[in-house]
Every structure is written in C-alpha cells, then in structure tokens.
C-alpha cells in the first residue's frame, strides 16, 4: 500500500504546528466571521452603527469630568478630549481583542465540538472586525482633531505618526497572544477567567491612558515602563498630541515581549486545540 495519505490523525503533534495553509484555505470563513460581527452587532437597534461613536464619546466626556476635572490629572498640555479619546479608542481595541481571544474556546465550544477548521481563524477574525471598528472610530478622532487644528491649537503633529499602523498591530498581537494563553488555560481551569476579569481593569490603570507617563516618577515610573504597552500608548500620544514620549528602546522592548508571548501562546493554543473538547 502506497503511503500517500492526505491526512494523518495522531495522538501527539509537534509542539508548534500552525496550520497556515489551512488558515489560508479557510480565508472565506475568516471573512464570514468578520462579516457576521458587523451584521449582527447592532441588529434591531435604532441608532445602528452610530453606537460605534456613542460609546467612546460618552466615555471621553466622563473621563474629562472625573479624571480631568475632579481628580485634576494633567494631560501635559494636550486638549483633554483628544487625549482621552485616543487613549480610550486604543485601550478598547486592546481589551476587546484580548477578551475576544480569551473566549475563543469557551464561547465557541458548540461549533468547535462539531466541526474542524483551523481554530485560529476565530480570534484572527475578531481582531480583524475590531480593527475595522477602530478605523471607523478613527474618523471621529480625526474630526475632533481637525476642529482643534482649526481653532489654532498647536498639536505638534510629527513624522512618527506614520508608525501608527505598526503600533496598532503591536497592540493587536499583544492582545491576541495574551488572550490565546488565557483561552487555552481556561479551557481546562476556569480560575483564570475570574482573575482576568478584574485584572484587565487594573491593568488599564497600569498603562498611561488616563494620565501621561510624565506624571509618574521614581519607582512608579520604573514599574510603568515595565508594562510593554506603555511605549505604544506614549508613542501614539507623542506623534500627534505633543505630549508623551517616543523611545525606540521602549518600542523594541515591547516588540520583544510581544514576539515571545506570541510564540508561547501558539504553543499553548496548539496544545489546547487538540483536546480542549474533552476538558472544556
């Protein structure tokens, strides 16, 4: 018998075995998942896609009132709406990506239990649809930005703004890899789910979103700089708001953390993908 099997199902697989070919073959499914996210999110609502804007606007106003007004936290001279809006949009993108990825197994147990397709499609699709949402929200940001430019505020827009897509992708992959790790671990032990719920909330305060890094000093600043997301948020603010800081070292550190965690996450995910169904 010639050994020309097209498929072998074995108990043990290699540690890192990403089915890139499979993902490409299932690209239409990727597209369908993205489409589904958009088609279904605001079904049976009157305001429909306007909700993309309402949520960040209200949050921004709230932050301006609480952090900017009551707490009096500085924004380093940047206009408060722009400062908070940029932070909120990017943070929402990160946290929604992370949540999406970390629910990969638990939320899709039904489908995963019936049909095989490369499981990575699901978090990748979530990442994509959130990215589109971010792009839509970017229009809101640009509109407010233009308003301030017309009013003659010096926002010191500079060349580093071209790095914006890269920074967003870094954010996405941070979220993806941490989310995948959590997803793989929670498929068996649910404990992490509870930790992650409030952990993410705390983590937001450990990232310079509602405050600029410059307000921190000494030990606290050192701790904040350990956060791999810090350089990303700082660089975004530096590129178009005239506050924040830009550091190649920081970004390199962030990228290194991202690559390592991505590597780990793919191993763990690969492992969990095989037998999550028996444990979920």
């Amino acid at each position: 018998m010639a050994e020309d099997w097209t498929l072998e199902i074995k108990p043990k697989r290699r540690l890192l075995d990403i089915d890139l070919k499979g993902i490409w073959r299932y690209r239409d499914l990727w597209y369908m998942y993205v489409k589904r996210d958009f088609v279904t999110v605001y079904k049976q609502t009157i305001l429909g896609p306007l909700w993309f804007f309402i949520q960040p606007i209200f949050t921004t106003v709230m932050y301006m009132f609480v952090f900017g007004g009551l707490a009096g936290i500085s924004t380093d001279g940047a206009p408060k709406p722009l400062f908070y809006l940029s932070g909120i949009m990017l943070w929402n993108y990160f946290s929604e990506c992370f949540n999406g990825a970390s629910n990969t197994f638990t939320a899709n147990a039904g489908v995963f239990g019936k049909i095989y397709f490369p499981r990575l499609i699901v978090p990748l699709a979530t990442m994509t649809s959130l990215l589109i949402k971010l792009l839509i929200q970017l229009f809101l940001f640009i509109a407010v930005y233009l308003y301030y430019l017309r009013a003659g505020v010096n926002l010191s827009l500079n060349i580093t703004v071209l790095l914006f897509p890269v920074l967003v992708l870094m954010l996405a992959f941070h979220a993806l890899s941490w989310g995948l790790i959590v997803s793989s671990l929670t498929s068996k032990y649910r404990d992490l789910k509870y930790l992650v719920g409030f952990g993410l909330h705390l983590f937001m305060y450990a990232t310079p979103i509602i405050y600029p890094l410059s307000v921190a000093s000494g030990k606290i600043r050192a701790i904040l700089e350990l956060n791999p997301l810090t350089p990303i948020f700082e660089a975004v603010k530096y590129s178009c708001l005239g506050c924040g800081s830009f550091s190649w070292v920081g970004l390199a550190y962030s990228a290194a953390v991202m690559l390592v965690s991505l590597f780990i996450s793919l191993i763990v995910f690969n492992q969990a993908e095989r037998d999550f169904l028996d444990t979920v």
């Binding site: 099997w5 498929l7 199902i9 074995k10 697989r13 239990g113 019936k114 028996d278």
Partner: peptide, 29 residues
C-alpha cells in the same frame, strides 16, 4: 469526533485519503 478531527485519539493513528467532510450536526454556526 476522532474522524472529524474535533478531538484527537489517545492512542493509535487514523489515516485518510481525500477531503473529509463531517456532518455531526446540521446548521453549525
């Protein structure tokens, strides 16, 4: 489930030729 690659075997190997489609349920997704 094993044949559909939804879960993997503890021992042994399954080999197949060609594209497998499995219908464990209708209307998945």
């Amino acid at each position: 489930k094993l044949l559909s690659r939804v879960t993997s075997p503890t021992t042994g190997t399954i080999r197949a030729r060609g594209k497998i489609a499995s219908l464990l349920e209708v209307g998945t997704g």
